[in-house]
């Protein structure tokens, strides 16, 4: 589904991703964990080119999207992204937040998009918020809306950049629940997170990143039970 080859990214002299090669297959739920500054968010943001790699290629659905000739807007329509800080558009109602992109990119008519929005909102239990503005919602509600907004584009792949890190503890559950549901429906997901429980329960593969490398990867059960690298063991001993 999506693959990177010899992917490197530096900000000035600071090398954040160092020659990564990795492939994510359709239907996988890849969870990326690691200490802060390890490059996991940057890796995720390179997948939809919010960050342009310094070197290497990203291939999505058989197309090399790092090629400057590729219309990245078209590619991004098939990849949803959920941000740590929600990034809902505060100047629009929830309905408009959800329908704007699918209508503007001519994926749907306004009526179809409205129906899709209603159905998606019902799914996350927020159908009564369609005409509210983001400022009227709690953090957990905002993040569920942000997920719905990405899903409205009917993406093939969903990227989650620490979706629960900015939430109050009691709101984490409701967001993870929506993500779990999505995983069960077979969505391909790449999730950067600190929620080890989620990684264990939902992930099909765990990547551990440190210093711009993927240091270790395994199935969740193996990864948490028998970490191999010393760095991984140190990290897990601190967070578990």
């Amino acid at each position: 589904m999506i693959a990177v080859e010899h992917l490197s990214k530096s900000f000035g002299d600071n090398l954040v991703l160092d020659d990564l090669t990795e492939e994510i297959a359709e239907g996988e739920k890849v969870v990326i964990i690691g200490p802060s500054g390890s490059g996991k968010s940057t890796f995720l943001r390179c997948l939809n080119l919010l960050e342009l790699p310094t070197a290497g290629t990203v291939t999505f659905d058989g197309e090399v999207i790092t090629d400057p000739k590729v219309d990245i807007d078209k590619v991004r329509r098939k990849m949803g992204m959920v941000f740590q800080h929600f990034n809902l558009f505060p100047n629009m109602t929830i309905r408009k937040n959800i329908t704007l992109a699918s209508v503007r990119t001519k994926l749907m008519s306004q009526a179809e998009a409205d129906d899709t929005a209603t159905a998606l909102l019902r799914r996350v239990g927020l159908e009564d918020k369609a005409d509210a503005y983001p400022a009227q919602l709690s953090g957990g509600q905002k993040q569920r809306i942000a997920i719905v907004r990405a899903l409205a584009m009917k993406p093939k792949l969903m990227l989650f950049d620490e979706p629960t890190s900015a939430l109050d503890p009691e709101m984490v559950g409701e967001v993870l629940e929506v993500m779990k549901q999505l995983a069960e429906e077979g969505m391909t997901m790449v999730v950067v997170t600190h929620e080890m429980g989620f990684a264990r329960e939902v992930g099909s593969r765990v990547l551990f990143m440190d210093g711009g490398h993927i240091l270790e990867q395994n199935t969740p059960a193996e990864f948490f039970a028998h970490p191999k690298e010393q760095r991984t063991i140190d990290f897990l001993s601190k967070v578990l």
């Binding site: 919010l50 329509r77 990034n87 558009f89 100047n91 992109a101 503007r104 990119t105």
Partner: peptide, 29 residues
């Protein structure tokens, strides 16, 4: 906030559309 632009672009909106519907209305206010 740059996140507003990123959210718009990540949904597949063009630079112009992101400016027109997301950035400019908020900046104007």
């Amino acid at each position: 906030d740059i996140g507003q632009t990123e959210a718009g672009r990540s949904l597949g909106l063009t630079y112009i559309d992101t400016m027109r519907f997301i950035v400019v209305p908020q900046a104007f206010k």
